[in-house]
Write a protein that binds this DNA or RNA. Structure first.
Lengths: 107, 107
DNA sequence: TTGTTTTATCGTAATATTGCAATATAATAA
DNA sequence: TTATTATATTGCAATATTACGATAAAACAA
């Protein structure tokens, strides 16, 4: 064993787990943070911003892109990455649901 | 290589990454879901609810506990787990911040 | 005490993630 | 065309995660 038993869980559960997994690394949190501080959706100077090698950043960007947390558009030789607000909405809604269910609970 | 370069990132970035990592597995999402559906904070019949062996559930519960997403109180031989609303708050605040910074952005 | 029930831990195999050097690809410039 | 720049992919070593059988520990009952 060792692999996750994803087939045992619902689509929604797997979907949320995938979103959280994409955000489960400090470098990827830092990338999201950085994309939020720059006013325009600046591209690969993320490599200059973070203490990781270019292939490593590229890999983290790919994971964020696969999870739909960011999207990238080609601009000449560069690629412009930015946050996907729809996915942020989806995560916020999930916590809204949790918050709602948590009302009138003990503990 | 292979280990995360956690020391290269801020406390907050590591903290959020740790929270998301705790939620990055469908079984742990399912545990949180289940704890939200039961009215009282029911304990280890999570084992009966999920298609995973007892040691595996115990391990997942430990990770959720370490991340402060759930807390457990001893009740005789059983242990009663429930959601920690403070941690839910913390995550919601993080997305509140993202939402706020995302206002007036292009892409 | 012994037995029962419930949860945690140990040990280990299978698999996944992280990080980077080397290399490849894509778009533009000269 | 060749060069340059920016990003992606490959390959691999180090490490982490997942899952579970076996076993231990903790709380109570008889």
């Amino acid at each position: 064993m060792g692999a996750s038993k994803t087939e045992s869980f619902s689509f929604e559960q797997n979907e949320m787990a995938t979103l959280f997994k994409a955000l489960s690394h400090p470098a990827r949190i830092a990338i999201v943070d950085y994309l939020l501080t720059v006013d325009s959706c600046i591209c690969g100077d993320i490599v200059n911003e973070l203490p990781l090698a270019q292939p490593t950043i590229s890999q983290h960007l790919k994971e964020l892109k696969n999870a739909n947390i960011i999207k990238g558009t080609i601009e000449g030789t560069a690629i412009c990455y930015c946050i996907n607000p729809d996915t942020i909405d989806k995560i916020e809604n999930h916590f809204g649901m949790i918050r709602h269910k948590l009302k009138n609970k003990c503990c």
